[in-house]
Nucleic acid binder design. Structure first.
Lengths: 199, 199
DNA sequence: ACCGACCTAATGTGTGTTCAGTAGGTTGGG
DNA sequence: CCCAACCTACTGAACACACATTAGGTCGGT
């Protein structure tokens, strides 16, 4: 029962992932609304109807893409490290997988309205990002590494805003020196969070 | 000739501006692609065909909206003041005309692709925003108010990224304490730009 | 009479989705 | 070993719908 139709199922799984990655790539650049099923299907070497054999609807495909991305992010997440160091390393993603950079930012903009299909999901994710950074700052304060006169909640919002905005800016203009910008930003963060150097 | 049909033309001008402001509002929230002519027309108390009597096409309406917005921004711009003070006052827009906040950010995302209809226009505008801030920082350095060991170009990119990202965050979650966040951000900027206080 | 401000109705195009069918591999019974 | 039943993957054509845009007409003011 379980092992029936092994090779067929394997082939289907391959195509499924092909569709998923094609959808991811197109989504991150054009957004959801202006990406048609035909476009994704063509990128995956299939017809629109064939695509809907693997995913019941365009909506379900969208959620599948997000699920995959969430799983990926969770696997990569490091909730105990120093937030400054995490941010410093973030720019590596820009060079390593530039195809995926900004997908979150693009989808966010498309789902601002409270009744947009992804609004709630993205709002939760957005708040989770802020909370994670906030918790990191609090941890640093508790450990005595960070100054106490910094409001972690406020600073966390600023950081997330910068990160999202930076993704957008870079997508628009890839000639920006992101390495330098990220380095400068993290140094500024250190200056704000670390005790005044009276070493 | 010029003065003929005065009241009719006046009525037309009124409706034209009604359409423009309705389009602005809808655009800032839903973006361009997912805002239909019918939607804008309904908001302006007119039919889609009636709307196209005032604007030749949807594209032309889009550009008219942007023209109006650019003119408004230019009139409000202050290219000689202290950039930090300008940014500090920016949050007033969030409370004064929340309907318009984020229009630029939304359109940006929809036109990331180099061949998107508004790509070039928005890229120019984005760079102009960066340049303005960069020039402001340089001016402060020249006047001896700001430290010299800050790279104005890099810092300007960071600031613009934060501002754009902040608009997005606020559009998604209007419960954010923007006044507090903007105040904290500008104070951090002062800390970075001003000489270490050995007053 | 003329003109601007509209409306109704129609057209064409793009889109998500459905439906019926085909090709080819798998399974189990004789 | 073979055959019928069955499965998965997929195609082609058709459907319903939303959309921007056009054509032709109405109405009221000048």
């Amino acid at each position: 029962m379980q092992r029936a139709y092994d090779t067929l199922l394997a082939k289907g799984e391959d195509r499924r992932e092909l569709i998923l990655s094609a959808a991811q790539r197109l989504l991150a650049r054009n957004g959801w609304r202006s990406t048609s099923l035909a476009q994704i299907a063509r990128a995956a070497g299939i017809t629109p109807a064939g695509l809907l054999h693997h995913f019941q609807s365009k909506d379900q495909l969208l959620h599948a893409v997000l699920d995959a991305r969430d799983a990926d992010d969770d696997a990569r997440a490091d909730r105990s490290g120093d937030p400054i160091e995490q941010i410093r390393g973030l720019y590596l993603r820009f060079e390593k997988s530039p195809d995926l950079v900004g997908m979150f930012a693009v989808l966010l903009i498309e789902n601002l309205e409270p009744d947009a299909p992804l609004h709630d999901r993205l709002l939760v994710r957005h708040r989770a990002a802020i909370d994670t950074i906030e918790a990191g700052i609090r941890r640093g304060q508790h450990a005595g590494r960070y100054r106490m006169d910094v409001n972690p909640a406020v600073k966390a919002v600023e950081i997330v805003a910068f990160l999202n905005g930076m993704e957008t800016s870079w997508l628009l203009d890839r000639s920006l020196p992101i390495a330098e910008i990220f380095e400068d930003f993290t140094q500024s963060l250190e200056q704000q969070l670390m005790p005044t150097s009276t070493t």
